[in-house]
Design a protein around this nucleic acid. Sequence first.
DNA 1: TACTTATTTGCATGATTGCGCACACGTGCT
DNA 2: AGCACGTGTGCGCAATCATGCAAATAAGTA
Lengths: 113, 113
Amino acid sequence: MAKTTRASECTTTLEAHLNPELFKAMGDETRLALIARLASAAGPLTVTEAAECCGVHLSGVSRHLAALKNAGLIAAQKEGREVRYTLDCGALASALRDLADALEACKAGCCDG
Amino acid sequence: MAKTTRASECTTTLEAHLNPELFKAMGDETRLALIARLASAAGPLTVTEAAECCGVHLSGVSRHLAALKNAGLIAAQKEGREVRYTLDCGALASALRDLADALEACKAGCCDG
DNA sequence: TACTTATTTGCATGATTGCGCACACGTGCT
DNA sequence: AGCACGTGTGCGCAATCATGCAAATAAGTA
C-alpha cells in the first residue's frame, strides 16, 4: 500500500501544511511590515507602537493585527486599556520549516522513491 | 556599530525575505492546489493536466500558472503547442527556510544579544 | 462625574481579484 | 488551405479587501 499511495500521501501531507489563511495573512505589505516590527521588537507592542512602522491609520493597523491574530500568527494580551501583541517567531519559523520539509519529502517521494 | 544597529540589521535582513509577492501568490486556494499538484507530479505538467486538481475553468488555471510563474515560484517551458510547468521544490523550500532563519535570527538578536 | 487615552467597529469608497465566457494566437496534422 | 488542439487574453461581473473617517467602547485619572 505504501507504494501505491506514495503520491497521494505526500500530497495529503503537503496540503496539510499549505494553509491558505497563513499566506493570505502574509500577503499584504502592511501586515508584513507589522510582522517585521513585532519580530524585531524586544517585547510585546501595543497597537500604537506597532503602527509606527507603517503609514496606515491606526484603525487599519488594529484591523491588520486582528487579522494576523485570527490567522494564528500573533497573540494578543489585554493589559489595562492597552493590548500587547506578540509574534512567536519560533512557531512561525517551525511552520515554515515544516512546509519546506513537506515540499522536499513530496519531491523525493515522487521523483526518487 | 554592530551593537547599536542590531535591531535595524535584523529587520533589514528579515524584510528582504518577507516578499509580499511570494505570499500573495500562495494566498489563493486554487494556486496552492496547483502548487501541491506540481509538487507531487513526477515531471512537468501541462496547463490541462494541472487543471485536473481544481474545478476552475482552464483559462483561470492558465492565469494562475502565469501568476505563479510571475512570482518566480514555477517555471514554464514551451514545447510545441503545450507549455510544461515545473515547480522547483528545493528552491521554494530554501526560500522558506531562509525566512525561518531570518525570523529566528531577528528574535535572537533582539531578545538575547 | 467629566476628561483623556487606547483600541475597536460601522460605514462608504476606491482598488484589487478570481471567475467564466468568448475569442484570438500559435502549433501540428491532413 | 482547412481543421483540431492547447494556451493565452480582453471583457464584464461579483466578491473581497485595504483604507480613512467618525463614532463607540473600555480603562485610567482628576
